[in-house]
């Protein structure tokens, strides 16, 4: 194979993609209280991670190559 150019430098913003993985630490949220709208903490905490995931991926998208940043 011919000499290949060195790989492009990693974008540090990509590290944000690791943040949503924190929701896999079950011991942080396996509780009933406090409830929100009657929903145990276990459930609404995980629902709250949906926007967290969207924001993290969204920021990485905006900071990625070809988005004029």
């Amino acid at each position: 194979m011919a000499e290949q150019p060195p790989p492009r430098k990693r974008n540090p913003w990509n590290l944000l993609l690791l943040v949503p993985l924190l929701m896999l630490v079950t011991s942080w949220f396996n509780f009933d209280q406090p409830r929100l709208f009657g929903m145990p903490f276990f459930y609404w905490y995980q629902f709250a991670f949906v926007p967290v995931g969207v924001i993290c991926v969204g920021v990485v998208y905006l900071k990625s190559r070809g988005e004029g940043q």
């Binding site: 990509n14 690791l18 896999l24 991926v57 990485v60």
Partner: peptide, 20 residues
């Protein structure tokens, strides 16, 4: 019960993992 709720974290961690 709660175990069945794994579907939510599953589909939340999914997109950051496969994005790149």
């Amino acid at each position: 019960g709660a175990l069945g709720f794994y579907a939510l974290p599953y589909t939340v961690v999914l997109y950051p993992i496969v994005f790149l």
